[in-house]
Amino acid sequence: MSESNHVRDIIRNNIKHRKNRLEMIMPKLFLIAGSISIFTTIGIVLTLLIDAYHFFEQVPIREIFSTKLAPLGVNPSFGILPLINGTIITSLIAMFVAVPVGLTAAMYLSEFSSENTRKIIKPVMEVLAGIPTIVYGFFAYSFVTPLLMNLIPTLEPKNALSPGIVMGIMIIPLVTSLSEDAMSSVPNDMREGALALGSTRLEVTLKVVIPAAISGIMASFVLAISRAIGETMIVTIASGSSKNFTLDITQSMQTMTAYIVEFTSGDAGIGTGYYSLYAVGLVLFIFTLIMNLLSRYISRKYREEY
């Protein structure tokens, strides 16, 4: 009888004890911290939606689809098409660089190189991935553009080509590392089977490994597009701020991201121009969100399980 009372006292003391209150409080604190990420998402969506709504109060939706963008003109015009055009063109140029180079580099690392070579090359790729984008922007403007101007005399000092190429270089490590991961996870039995039938390494890579890893590879491409669309500093510095609606890559074009940077650093004050930032931001957010979801969908849906 007295024994069980004693135990009960201990338990009661334990509950009163500070450490046990901590036991109750800590999970709640962690939960609060964990929900910050959700509030961030809600914050982003609300910010964009509310101010984009103010924008659409002032500008008819029809006007968005015009090809003329002149936010600061006497008769301001807010067609987003020049920005979407600039974004797509610079991203396409980037993909033209990043996909072939990134994928073949991944093929080399995963299928052809020795373990030692891989150990040297992978950290170097990480260095390439870790360089801040502003540095790439400086590189594009002060080195790649002058170089290209020697080759293409009609190239303007600010153009879509140079930042597109440099953006592609920036994305190479992303494509390489994700594709290489996908290819390395293809089981060796399949390679050995094909080799035993007399395939060369190249045939194994093209006909066995790539088809088996295609979901991961495609996902890496989509993620690369998303990265290119969202990339800001390279295009802001090297592609300039002309709101041209053109397919001529030797000319200056503005991307959605560059428009946002140009306008905020120009300190436009609160007005239709200021709200237009959020409308552009909303479109940009939707673009990248779709790409990110698509990337995850592809890698889930078409993954071959071994």
Partner: peptide, 24 residues
């Protein structure tokens, strides 16, 4: 849900975070 949310946040362009910071 939180995991998916965080991986989506990782994919949001940094300018958008700038707009969030500017507003909030």
């Amino acid at each position: 849900f939180v995991n998916i949310n965080i991986s989506n946040l990782a994919g949001v362009p940094s300018v958008i975070f700038g707009l969030l910071g500017l507003t909030v």
